[in-house]
C-alpha cells in the first residue's frame, strides 16, 4: 500500500527524485562546515567520472533531516551522517544501513561554557537551572547528556534549549546561555567565548564513541550494491591520499566546506579518517558499532526521550560490513 502514499505524495511535491529506476544520478547528503577528506573527490568530480553518474551533493545542517530525506527517498547515500540520528531513525523503523565509518571526531563536537559562567567540570552541578543551547537528537545531544550524567548533573533540571548548531553559537556569543553545544564551524566560533566543559579525550575515556557513519537506504543498497561499493572505494582512495599528506588538500577542503583556512585546518586535525582495514575490526564495523548502537538507544530510553529500543539482534542487522569487504 506504499503505492497509495506515493500517488498522493507525488502531486504534493514531496518526492522530487523519480530517478530511482534507471540510476543516472546519485543524491548524496553531506554537512556544510564539516571538511571531510572525500570532499576533494567531491569538488574534483572524481565520483562522477569514476562511477559514470551525475552526483548531486546536497548539504544539510543536521543528521535527523538526512535520515528523513532517506526515508522520503530523496537521498541515496548520506556521507557523514551522525551516528545518533542514524540509531534513532533505525529504532523508529526507517530502513537504513550503516556501510562504513566516515570519520571519528571526539574534539570536533563539544559543549562550551561561557567564560562569565564560572563553571568547570568540578562544579558542573551549577548548570542545574541554567540555560544550555544544543541541537537535539544527535551526536552533540547524546554527548551532552552522557557528559552531564558522568559529572553527576541532573539533565532534567538543566534548561536545554533545542536549537540548530548555528543558533547555539549565536546564543553563546550573546551570553544568553551558560553553555552551548555544537560541532564543526559553530564549535570553532563557540570557543571564542569560553572553554569546553570536558575535552574530547576525557569523554572518550568514559566510553563515549564519537563518529559519523555512511548511511544508505536499505532498498537502495539492495538495488544498487555496485554503486555503493564504488562510492566507498572512491572514498577510501580519497582518505588514503589525504592521510599520506594532509596539507596538500587544506586549500581545496577549505573552499569545499565553506570555512576559513585556520578553522578548516583546526577541524581537520581533529578528524580521523579510518582506513578500510581499521574499520573492519571488532572496534568498529565488526561489532563495536552494533554494541554502541544498542547503548545509545538504551540511553535515550533511560532519559525518557524515546519509548523503546530494539533488540541487540536488530542493531546487528543495522550494519552491513560486506560492502567494505569488497573495497580494495
Amino acid at each position: 500500500m506504499m503505492k497509495f502514499f506515493k500517488y498522493i505524495a507525488v502531486p504534493l511535491g514531496l518526492m522530487v527524485s523519480a530517478n530511482a529506476f534507471a540510476l543516472k544520478e546519485l543524491n548524496v547528503a553531506y554537512f556544510l562546515e564539516w571538511p571531510s577528506a572525500n570532499q576533494v573527490a567531491q569538488v574534483e568530480k572524481t565520483y562522477d567520472e569514476r562511477m559514470g553518474l551525475k552526483v548531486n551533493w546536497k548539504s544539510f545542517d543536521n543528521g535527523n533531516q538526512m535520515v528523513q530525506a532517506i526515508a522520503a527517498g530523496d537521498i541515496d547515500i548520506a556521507y557523514s551522517n551522525g551516528f545518533v540520528p542514524q540509531v534513532l531513525g533505525y529504532t523508529k523503523g526507517v530502513k537504513i544501513k550503516v556501510v562504513g565509518v566516515a570519520m571519528t571526531y571526539a574534539e570536533n563536537d563539544n559543549c562550551v561554557v561561557h567564560k562569565d559562567a564560572g563553571i568547570t567540570k568540578k562544579n558542573a552541578k551549577k548548570l542545574e537551572g541554567k540555560k544550555v543551547a544544543s541541537p537535539i537528537g544527535n551526536v552533540t545531544h547524546f554527548k551532552l547528556l552522557r557528559t552531564l550524567k558522568h559529572l553527576g548533573v541532573d539533565a532534567k533540571k538543566v534548561k536545554i534549549l533545542p536549537s540548530s548548531n548555528a543558533d547555539a553559537s549565536s546564543a553563546l556569543a550573546r551570553g544568553d546561555v551558560a553553555m552551548a553545544c555544537g560541532f564543526g564551524g559553530s564549535l570553532v566560533r563557540m570557543k571564542q567565548y569560553g572553554k569546553v566543559l570536558m575535552t574530547g579525550a576525557e569523554q572518550e575515556a568514559i566510553g563515549l564513541k564519537v563518529f559519523d557513519v555512511v548511511t544508505v537506504g536499505s532498498k537502495f543498497l539492495k538495488k544498487h550494491r555496485k554503486v555503493v561499493t564504488q562510492f566507498m572505494q572512491i572514498t577510501e582512495d580519497a582518505n588514503l591520499a589525504y592521510n599520506r599528506y594532509p596539507a596538500r588538500f587544506y586549500k581545496t577542503l577549505s573552499k569545499a566546506s565553506g570555512m576559513k583556512m585556520a578553522g578548516t585546518i583546526d577541524t581537520l586535525n581533529k578528524f580521523t579518517f579510518l582506513t578500510r582495514a581499521e574499520q573492519l575490526t571488532n572496534d568498529w564495523m565488526l561489532g563495536g558499532i552494533q554494541k554502541f548502537a544498542k547503548e545509545v538507544a538504551d540511553f535515550y530510553v533511560e532519559q525518557g526521550e524515546i519509548p523503546k529500543a530494539l533488540s541487540k539482534a536488530k542493531y546487528k542487522k543495522m550494519v552491513d560490513a560486506s560492502i567494505l569487504g569488497e573495497v580494495k
Partner: peptide, 20 residues
C-alpha cells in the same frame, strides 16, 4: 524552532528529530 524551552512549535520540532 529556535531555542524555545516550551511551546507547541518546539514540541513539533523536537518530536521530528526523534521521528515521533
Amino acid at each position: 524552532l529556535v531555542a524555545a524551552e516550551a511551546g507547541v512549535g518546539m514540541m513539533i520540532m523536537v518530536a521530528s528529530k526523534f521521528l515521533s
